[in-house]
Design a protein around this nucleic acid. Sequence first.
DNA 1: GCGGATCAC
DNA 2: TATGGTGATCCGC
Length: 382
Amino acid sequence: QKEQCVDRFAMELEQSRNLSNTIVHIDMDAFYAAVEMRDNPELKDKPIAVGSMSMLSTSNYHARRFGVRAAMPGFIARRLCPQLIIVPPNFDKYRAVSKEVKEILADYDPNFMAMSLDEAYLNITKHLEERQNWPEDKRRYFIKMGSSVENDNPGKEVNKLSEHERSISPLLFEESPSDVPPPGDPFQVNFEEQNNPQILQNSVVFGTSAQEVVKEIRFRIEQKTTLTASAGIAPNTMLAKVCSDKNKPNGQYQILPNRQAVMDFIKDLPIRKVSGIGKVTEKMLKALGIITCTELYQQRALLSLLFSETSWHYFLHISLGLGSTHLTRDGERKSMSVERTFSEINKAEEQYSLCQELCSELAQDLQKERLKKKYLPLLRNC
DNA sequence: GCGGATCAC
DNA sequence: TATGGTGATCCGC
């Protein structure tokens, strides 16, 4: 009886499958580490991580080869990679760069949803519609060449991209097999000479497909910030997020908006890749012999008996490749907190005063929020 | 309604 | 020497 209930629900979900939206997940590559490397050439080809001896926020790809990962204590990372350079975080700078990226994203979806300084979801469905009858010039971008390392060769040719520029913008030359431009929608690079024959103005025209839109976004991000991003394109947020991981770093991947493409992608996908399935859930499901989405679907009846309704509904969504098709404006903050990890030995007396510290910090934060609410709207009118 | 657990970043 | 901090949600009590 329960089994029938589950299968009926699965059928209803299948009926309501919505493939009409194009959702994009943008993810900056090794964001904090990339910013630090950009601004300090000393770090360029060294393994680095951003954080402290107690906790790392992120590492560059060089360091990842040693097993150095985000959320790893710095002193452990140092054991894995003694040459590792640990850079203290500059959050103000990351916020500023993030703002630059967000200005670009807003052009494609003014309602985009930022998940953090380096990640965001976009619904580009509307943009795609409007873009279909855009003239080429509206999709043309001029290429700013890397101001390069001090040019020790003044006679260097200017009419082609140097190796340096290639490496700065591999996006322009990439040919990922999963990333075939649709016919009649070729990706073209134009090299145009201006009045001054010495100065060349190079431009790129992006097509009208979703892939081309996302290439354009990534191109503009790289031109503006000298940082690369990866992206996923899919009919819902759950899939888009998994996709953005597929060709990382500096790549993109699309699941085409048809049921078969979604199912093919989902088939062998380890459930742990899905946002919302963490370490604990992975372990519980593994104990039931469930690793992939296919297995998750096959065990739906069992799961409906072992888990809460919200949980098995969620599992069923995942196993069918379903997810949010619209981005909900994130509303007001619902809570505010302050916490700190204390060193191990603390006298009760000391702990008490630390708690008092935290309380007053929290009180200050709450006060700040209240001031923001009261006076910010007034400032906007000035 | 509260606190613990889980999760994401 | 040394394993973070913030916000959200779900669940059992």
